[in-house]
Design a protein around this nucleic acid. Structure first.
Length: 821
DNA sequence: GAGCACTGC
């Protein structure tokens, strides 16, 4: 974005002038009630004022005659309670009708649960009986209109289907009105009119993600100039699923009026007015549209998760908002962080919407526990032995694959020892790197008379939800990735979770019914030892990518950029230094031509630079394959415990001639391509199919970006020197020289490292290498290593290396047989 | 001769 946005003074004037009209119009409408709703949660409201009266009402409700007289005198919550009962009866009869007409109904457990939830949520429904009819009418109209577009595009629809459609639509309207958010619709719209930025605290199950964009659309926020309402999600599946749900509710085809946009898949069209997308995708849109002119509203959902992308979005969007007073911002967060968000957005008001969830009983351990793995197993077996079988499954949170496998073994062994004295207990491991076929196991329904125990990493905290979990066992730990800007190393560390995380984990037990959570740490420890929330990603990650992106949207002064939680200055400086070395920034910190080309690629800057440089060496086809393989990380090879030797041998096939890991990855990709992307081939070579498919998608994307930056796709598969020089053009800061003791030392900064044992060169120990990344585990290990000739460093990066840096003064002191590869 | 939390572009 051009940083030459209006000065603060002129912005203020502009804002005041343009908002004045609206202000005058709406001031009258603003009621005390609206203000109250924004401060007090509905649950508190109910609890404090009307508890007693409600109880009495329940006793009286049998007598209809009496009730109708009484209902006129009732307060709002009482009316709701009454209508709730009425609506349940209506809904049940409607459901039966639906079934009678033979409507196609998926019996997916998720949907069944949703419907159940919706029914439960009827408590909050329909405070305004008369208006309901109005709404239905208005809606029928709208649906007729939209339905015609369905008929247009789908000529097979016959009269019967149309009738069916109508039943379904009216049920959808009912469902929508049943969501806890519905009674707040008017107040919410009012608040959006009154304020530019609104923090929304929407508890789980409130319906905020699906309903708010629709409300705004109905209220006319999409009418002006065909502008869109954008809603970001931290995960791809969420964006897709919500978009599908909303398009269904609105009776339009997915990808038309309602669409989603995620990497590799843009399911939107010119008609699209409600757009769901991943937060990273919106961030990328800043590159082509710095003022987000095509949006009238941006909603950042799940902001409390504080992903890297949301944090950057905050800074950028705050700036856009001050330049565009008519752009509305909605930030949805969890209760704990709401005030922090409000402070950041200049005291934006907080709007609370209650959710619907089941109560969860929380148990803490009495005394501190030293062996949480053992304690988790014991607790699980205890639950299994003492609680009724058909009552619900168990979910245990552990830190990683190894722990999961050990726990699985112990549980199985102990259950076997107990024999028939106890009901069957099925162990289901789940972690991101588990092959897809095995992951599916957790979604299979539990057989009659048995119980499931799911052993999961953090993946079960937010990314996937498992039905029928009644018991959660929380060990209180997880693995987090930490980047050390000083050494440039990354490491995975086992760390205590935050309070927010602990509550999230506990909530996983209350999805289908009341649940219980057993925490393997004391309450004292929860109160005093755990942080309130996890350290945001932006403070513990390599920022090279972020800095390049910010530079290319025109942010010049990064150290003073308005971060909600600023990253360590050292990490920013390190990133700037790297970008300068790569030639993407000039002396004044401005983006160069090379930098502009690099920012087109959704990769780490070193990988992007490698691609840009491959133009010169005429091997872009090979380099994008390597970049794709490198960027999917270390989950390419599958190494089951019982076949480690075979797996290692398969891997070594790609290393013939000690070509180095980069070229080996290229060979893997090309061999797979030759088999026409065969799944069987992957199994035979102990390679993860999922990873390879991802690599193919990334490669395809990179290929299309080549065109955009004007690089020809040229292939030169046999010229290894050209390929290696391209790699070095991006990774020259990661070059290292062999020491006497068999370790390596980086050429510029004194950093030692060792070739990782999984590398094809770990036995070869070439004198000079370039590595992809440095990880700290038991030692500092260089992962993905390729041999280089020192002369190339001076040739490729003369601004960085002089001859004296690469003079091989120590060659004579080398032990015999080392460093001669 | 080792160790792979989770996302996203």
């Amino acid at each position: 974005m051009e940083k030459s946005s209006p000065t603060l003074e002129s912005r203020k004037r502009k804002t005041a002038g343009e908002d004045e009209d609206e202000d005058v119009k709406l001031k009258g409408k603003r009621t005390e009630q609206v203000e109250n709703l924004m401060k007090v949660s509905r649950q508190e409201y109910l609890k404090n004022r009307e508890k007693k009266k409600l109880k009495q009402l329940r006793d009286d409700i049998e007598d209809e005659q009496f009730l109708f007289e009484k209902i006129e005198k009732l307060s709002e919550p009482e009316k709701r309670e009454h209508l709730y009962k009425q609506k349940i009866v209506e809904l049940v009869s409607k459901e039966q009708q639906c079934d009678d007409t033979g409507e196609e109904r998926e019996i997916h457990p998720q949907q069944a649960w949703e419907e159940n939830q919706i029914n439960n949520a009827k408590l909050n429904f329909g405070s305004k009986d008369r208006k309901q009819k109005d709404y239905q009418f208005v809606f029928e109209d709208q649906i007729e209109f939209i339905k015609s577009t369905i008929v247009d595009s789908d000529s097979d629809v016959d009269v019967d289907n149309e009738k069916l459609q109508r039943t379904r639509n009216s049920k959808l309207i009912e469902d929508r009105k049943a969501l806890p958010i519905y009674p707040y619709k008017d107040a919410l719209l009012q608040a959006v009119h009154d304020h530019q930025v609104l923090i929304i605290v929407g508890e789980t199950g409130s319906g905020k993600t699906t309903q708010i964009p629709q409300y705004l659309h109905e209220a006319g926020f999409t009418r002006s100039g065909g502008k869109m309402i954008g809603c970001t999600q931290p995960r791809r599946v969420a964006a897709m699923r919500v978009a599908a749900r909303v398009s269904h509710e609105m009776g339009v085809k997915l990808g038309h009026e309602v669409g989603y946009s995620i990497r590799f898949e843009d399911c939107t069209s010119e008609k699209t007015i409600l757009k769901y997308m991943t937060d990273g995708m919106l961030l990328r849109e800043f590159l082509t549209e710095p003022d987000l002119a095509s949006y009238s509203v941006i909603m950042i959902d799940e902001a409390h998760e504080r992903t890297l992308s949301t944090d950057i979005l905050f800074g950028l969007i705050k700036d856009v908002a001050s330049a565009r007073p008519h752009l509305k911002l909605l930030i949805s967060s969890a209760t704990l962080d709401a005030e922090k968000f409000s402070d950041y957005f200049d005291c934006a008001p907080i709007f609370k919407i209650p959710g619907r969830r089941f109560p969860v009983e929380i148990h803490h351990s009495k005394a501190p526990i030293s062996d949480y793995l053992d304690a988790a197993v014991v607790t699980a077996l205890q639950i299994h032995a003492t609680q009724p079988q058909d009552d619900g499954d168990i979910l245990i949170f552990l830190t990683g694959q190894e722990e999961i496998e050990t726990a699985e073994n112990i549980i199985n062994r102990r259950i076997r020892a107990l024999g028939t004295k106890i009901a069957e207990l099925i162990t289901c491991p789940i972690y991101a790197n588990l092959p897809t076929e095995l992951q599916a196991k957790i979604f299979e329904p539990t057989p009659e008379g048995a119980r499931k125990v799911v052993l999961a990493t953090n993946i079960a905290e937010t990314s996937l939800t498992i039905d029928c979990i009644k018991y959660v066992i929380d060990t209180g730990f997880c693995k987090i990735n930490c980047y050390n800007p000083r050494t440039g190393t990354e490491s995975l560390m086992v760390a205590p979770i935050s309070k927010a995380s602990a509550n999230q984990r506990a909530g996983r037990s209350g999805r289908t019914g009341p649940g219980k959570c057993f925490r393997l740490y004391t309450e004292h420890s929860y109160m005093n030892d755990l942080e309130d929330s996890t350290i945001p990603e932006i403070q513990r990650t390599n920022l090279a990518n972020v800095v390049l992106l910010l530079k290319s949207v025109g942010i010049t002064d990064l150290l003073n950029f308005d971060f909600m939680d600023p990253p360590p200055a050292e990490a920013l400086l390190k990133a700037l230094e790297l970008l300068f070395a790569l030639g993407s920034l000039d002396k004044d910190g401005k983006l160069t031509k090379v930098g502009e080309r690099m920012s087109e690629f959704p990769l780490d800057p070193m990988l992007s630079k490698m691609i840009v440089a491959s133009d010169k060496y005429k091997c872009s086809a090979e380099i994008i394959s390597i970049a794709a393989m490198l960027s999917i990380g270390n989950s390419i090879f599958y190494r089951p415990k019982d076949r480690q030797v075979q797996a290692d041998n398969a891997w070594m096939n790609f290393h013939v001639g000690n070509v180095g890991d980069h070229i080996a990855l290229l060979k893997v990709y090309n061999s797979w391509k030759e088999t026409k992307f065969s799944t069987q081939w992957c199994y035979e070579n102990y390679i993860q199919v999922r990873s390879m498919k991802k690599a193919r998608d990334i490669r395809d994307q990179l290929e299309s970006r080549l065109e955009r930056v004007g690089i020809d796709l040229t292939s030169n598969v046999n010229d290894l020197e050209a390929i290696k020089k391209s790699i070095i053009s991006g990774f020259f800061p990661h070059s290292a020289r062999l020491q006497k003791n068999g370790a390596y030392r980086t050429v510029k900064h004194p950093q030692t490292g060792h070739i990782h044992p999984s590398s094809g060169l770990s036995q070869v120990l070439p004198r000079w290498v370039v590595y992809h990344e440095l990880v700290l585990t038991t030692k500092e290990y260089m992962r993905q290593v390729t041999e280089l000739k020192p002369g190339w460093l001076v040739e490729v990066a003369p601004h960085y290396y002089q001859l004296k840096d690469v003079e091989d003064s120590s060659s004579k002191k080398m032990p015999r047989g080392i460093g001669l590869a």
